[in-house]
Amino acid sequence: MSKSFSVADVATHKDAESGMYIIIDENVYDVAGFVDEHPGGAKMLKRVAGKDASKQFWKYHNEGVLKKYSERLKVGTVGEKAKL
């Protein structure tokens, strides 16, 4: 059951109260519950919350990281092409 979001919808979710959504390759993830676990620190996730983080994600991570956390963090997909 995957929900479809617009880029504007994702942009409204950029804090812990409303959820911290990021886009990675057309998929939407809520990282609010992952902030304290993130090895790179909370600051990195807060900086990209509400945005397309694909470029930053792939710069530091590989496919295995996405597979490991995808089931837990994925909340939907983007119904339109995200702009970097």
Rank of each mutant, 00 (worst) to 15 (best):
E17D: 12
V10R: 04
E71R: 14
D15F: 10
L73Y: 14
R47A: 05
A16S: 12
L84R: 11
Y21Q: 01
A16F: 11
G79L: 10
F57A: 10
M1N: 15
V78E: 03
V48G: 01
G79M: 10
L45S: 08
Y21E: 00
I23F: 06
K55S: 04
A82T: 14
R72A: 14
K55H: 08
E63C: 08
L66F: 03
D9C: 07
K67P: 10
H13P: 00
Y60H: 15
M1K: 15
A11S: 09
A49F: 04
E26Q: 13
A32N: 10
K51T: 07
A42C: 01
D36K: 14
G33M: 10
G41T: 00
W58R: 08
S4V: 15
A11D: 02
E37Q: 04
D30H: 14
N62Q: 05
L84I: 13
D25G: 06
G40P: 02
H61L: 11
L66K: 14
S4R: 09
D9G: 07
K59L: 03
R72N: 12
S2M: 15
N62H: 05
D52R: 02
S18D: 11
L84S: 14
A53S: 04
G50A: 02
N27P: 09
A11E: 08
D36W: 10
G40V: 02
K68S: 13
A53D: 04
K59Y: 02
A42H: 01
V31A: 03
G41H: 01
S2C: 11
Y69E: 10
Y29N: 06
E37D: 15
T12P: 02
G50P: 03
A49M: 06
F57T: 11
V65M: 11
A8T: 01
V78G: 09
K83E: 12
K68V: 04
K59E: 10
A11H: 07
A8D: 09
S2W: 14
V10Q: 07
V48Y: 07
K46T: 05
S4I: 15
G79T: 13
G33P: 07
K55P: 03
K67A: 13
M1R: 14
H13V: 03
I24Q: 01
Q56R: 07
G50I: 03
I23L: 01
D36E: 15
Q56T: 11
P39E: 12
A11P: 00
D36C: 10
E26H: 12
G50Q: 05
L73W: 12
P39F: 00
G76Y: 14
A11M: 00
E17P: 01
A49S: 01
V31K: 02
M20D: 05
F57I: 02
E71P: 13
T77G: 05
V10Y: 03
V48A: 00
G33V: 09
G40W: 01
F5L: 06
A8Y: 05
I24K: 00
V65N: 05
K83R: 12
R47C: 02
T12I: 03
K55L: 05
L84E: 14
K46V: 00
G79C: 01
S18N: 10
G79N: 13
I24F: 09
S6H: 06
E37H: 07
Q56A: 11
A53Q: 00
S2E: 15
A16W: 12
S6Y: 12
A82R: 11
E63Y: 05
Y29S: 06
K14D: 07
T77Q: 13
H61F: 11
A49E: 02
V28M: 04
